[in-house]
Design a protein around this nucleic acid. Structure first.
Lengths: 334, 334
DNA sequence: CGCTATATTGGAATCGATTCCAATATCACC
DNA sequence: GGTGATATTGGAATCGATTCCAATATAGCG
């Protein structure tokens, strides 16, 4: 026999001298309860310190008031917090809680996590990655509602929300052009992924829209770390005709670029304007001069994903891929 | 009437030609089931694609197989991921899931979060902060098991796990002494908090244990950001007798210190050894030279907290405050 | 005043698991 | 074959909420 100390709806009913149905109606704000009864019940609830057991409610109503959040590398990027924060804020608005599982990209764990969430009858699952890419989530995830966050499936058969990398690349470049730059270097990541491809495409379109010819030599691909940025910048500085601005694939590469520029005694932004991507606060705000960059909409993606699951709008027949803008964060490097 | 499509234990029982009790026994690996029956039931489960509903189980057993995780500023530090990752790894080991709520430090939200977790009958709650400090959690949290993580209550009446700041300060300083330094500056944060006080204490003890007199002038307090570090370093460089090493309250201050040193044409570590605190990868690994620093045991605290809640060891009468070591991360600045 | 329409209310049935008890089957042993 | 001990098993009761139906109270109206 289990401990049976906890106050239940029956205790309240007895204490208030009403039936359990009435108590339930009060709890759920049903309209058909007289003001007097309602007050009496509420007082009993208060007095006895009653707290409804959500398991019982979930069993009866088949609603767990929870959404699952599966992510890959929560610990290796500073972005996770923003995504979670966004999802959580919306979930909370709808009285839902987040069930979180971090998988380190392990497919076995992923499947087990989904299984656990299905057993708990979540309202849906947010499947989030820490960098924009193509994924193949476990098949069992299809048994509930899903949103992919910062990723998508090859055939776009699942709804997803991702940063608008193309437009981001476009706007970063356009910003430099507006400032009078016409020779603009672009240091890109060297492995193709959505961000790599789309930011480059945005760069090209911005150039062409402004009547600037694309110059192969101004595009340098390296690993997306400070060392890659350093190398890329040195490469650009060896060009016969120097660029006057660079657009960097991310802030970490920009950091390397800064080093190369300072080494050559070049001033930012006077001799070379620099624009980054990602808005890694810690870095971008503290470099000298502080780095102008494009912000990834992590918080917004978190919100959008949760809203999609909980918003109650009928799901469109063809799953959407929503692109969220990457706002320009103006600092001192342009 | 609700949709009643889902397979239940009764369906399995009927399909396998046994009673529901037997199915339950198979599901829970009870010993008293014959091999034949077990196999038959398992086959039915497989065949019908049965998945137990955790709400029903939770209702009956009064166990939700979940722990709550309440945190304050998940989005503003890169540490959150490590803490969560640690807690989650252990929770998973015990077949538990994390219910996550981020509160942005709002006490109203905190209390509501606890309430929700109590309603869900979590095994316990991890109350985590993103920097080491004294807190006052909502009172209702006492109705379940709690562990404070990276924080504690004034009167130490709740179990907590925090970094061993004193020892960290000691070891950072000792490391510099071992390298032959005798005049060691210390740039500290200017507001008192556990880290600020204890790291300073560690610094002093290390000096005194090695027969070095504490010199007031070598201690500079500024805000714990790059700008503060920059100022502090300049201050130290104006001293009549220069230090040959600095211990910085955190990596961000160290970053500012780097700037001041470079400005003066001083080489790290030849002219000045620098040691930081926090091990903010993004920063510490990418500075030039890379920064030697003390790592905060975020992952470990996450693990410890979850283990404390789930490990099943009887809780000691007087709640423990566990100190986790901050390992020295050797890089190139010492 | 009598009758219907409406507002409240009580409480049994239900959700889907676990668990305990009693019933039956099987076995060992004399 | 008989007896008691042990291994399996079925199924009713239970966890604590919601919900629906029927019952009662009240109001409105001619």
């Amino acid at each position: 026999m289990l401990a049976r100390n906890r106050i239940t709806i029956h205790d309240i009913a007895r204490h208030a001298g009403v039936g359990v149905g009435t108590v339930s109606r009060v709890l759920n704000n049903h309209p058909n309860v007289s003001a007097d009864t309602r007050a009496a019940v509420q007082q009993s609830i208060e007095q006895l310190g009653y707290r409804p057991r959500s398991a019982a409610k979930a069993l009866r109503t088949r609603k767990s008031l929870a959404i699952g959040f599966i992510t890959d590398y929560i610990a290796t990027t500073p972005f996770a917090g923003n995504v979670i924060s966004g999802a959580q804020d919306v979930a909370w608005q709808y009285d839902h809680i987040l069930l979180l599982v971090n998988t380190n990209g392990d497919p076995v764990l992923e499947e087990a996590a989904v299984e656990m969430m299905l057993a708990r009858e979540v309202e849906g699952i947010i499947y989030a990655t820490m960098w924009h890419r193509v994924v193949t989530p476990p098949k069992n995830i299809l048994e509930t509602n899903v949103v992919l966050l910062d990723c998508y499936v090859e055939d776009r058969s699942l709804p997803s929300v991702v940063p608008d990398e193309l437009r981001g690349g476009y706007e970063a470049t356009a910003r430099l052009i507006q400032n009078g730059h016409r020779r603009i270097g672009f240091m890109n990541h060297c492995d193709p992924d959505p961000a790599q491809v789309l930011r480059a495409e945005g760069y090209r379109r911005a150039l062409s829209d402004h009547g600037i010819a694309f110059d192969e030599g101004l595009l340098v691909e390296r690993i997306s770390e400070p060392s890659g940025g350093y190398e890329a910048m040195r490469r650009l500085l060896r060009l016969p005709e120097l660029p006057t601005a660079v657009f960097c694939y991310n802030d970490r590469m920009a950091m390397g670029a800064y080093d190369a520029l300072k080494e050559q005694g070049l001033k930012i932004p006077q001799d070379m304007a620099v624009i980054g991507y990602d808005n890694q606060e810690l870095l971008a705000a503290n470099l000298h001069p502080s780095l102008t960059t494009m912000e990834l909409p992590h918080y917004g993606m978190g919100r959008w994903a949760a809203q999609y699951l909980l918003g109650g709008e009928p799901k469109p027949a063809s799953p959407p891929q929503v692109l969220l803008a990457c706002p320009l964060i103006e600092r001192k490097s342009v």
